[in-house]
C-alpha cells in the first residue's frame, strides 16, 4: 500500500554521490518531491526525469527540493546524471535493495524495482500528496505543480 497522505514521511539516508549520503530530514523546512522510478537509462524514466529537470525553476519557486530515487547503484546514477545533465540528486536505494521504496509502500517485489511513484512532502516532512503511475506511463509534472500550488495557497 502506498504511504497515505497526512502521514510523516519515513526518514532515510541514501547515497546521492559515490561518497556522500543525504538524509531526508536534512531538507526539513523545505518541501520535498520524491520521485521514485524503476530504472536508470530506461526510456520512460529518462523522459520523465528530463521533464523534471526543466521544471526545477518552478519547483524552486515553490521552495521545493526534488529527489529522484531508484534501486540503481550510486555509480549508475553518477553516469546517468552526467549523461543527461540532471541538476538534482538521484538517490541509490541499493543496499539493502529497495528498503526505502518498501517503507513508502511502492516496491515491486516481483520485478525488484521501485514503482513509478511521486510524493510531495511539506516543510515538516508530512506526505501531502502522492501518486502511483502505471509503470509505462510518464506522469509529467502537472500533478506535482498542482500539489505545490495547493500547499502554498493553504499557507498564504
Amino acid at each position: 500500500m502506498i504511504l497515505p497522505t497526512n502521514t510523516p514521511a519515513p526518514d532515510f539516508a541514501l547515497y546521492a554521490t559515490p561518497d556522500k549520503q543525504v538524509k531526508l530530514s536534512d531538507f526539513r523546512g523545505k518541501k520535498v518531491i520524491l520521485a521514485f522510478y524503476p530504472a536508470d537509462w530506461s526510456p520512460v524514466c529518462s523522459d520523465q526525469l528530463a521533464v523534471y529537470n526543466e521544471s526545477l525553476k518552478l519547483f524552486q519557486a515553490a521552495n521545493a527540493q526534488l529527489l529522484g530515487i531508484s534501486v540503481d547503484s550510486k555509480w549508475s546514477h553518477k553516469a546517468f546524471s552526467e549523461d543527461r545533465h540532471f541538476q538534482f540528486p538521484l538517490l541509490a536505494d541499493f543496499e539493502p535493495k529497495g528498503a526505502v521504496a518498501k517503507l513508502y509502500g511502492i516496491y515491486d517485489e516481483k520485478e525488484g524495482l521501485a514503482q513509478r511513484a511521486l510524493f510531495v512532502l511539506d516543510e515538516d516532512g508530512i506526505v501531502q500528496w502522492s501518486y502511483l503511475s502505471p509503470i509505462d506511463v510518464n506522469p509529467g509534472a502537472d500533478g506535482i505543480l498542482d500539489a505545490l500550488d495547493t500547499l502554498n495557497n493553504v499557507i498564504s
Partner: peptide, 15 residues
C-alpha cells in the same frame, strides 16, 4: 519561451 514551457508543464506535457 519560458512561459510556453511552464504552461506545458502545468498542462501535463510529459515529453
Amino acid at each position: 519561451v519560458e512561459r510556453d514551457l511552464e504552461g506545458g508543464l502545468r498542462s501535463g506535457v510529459n515529453g
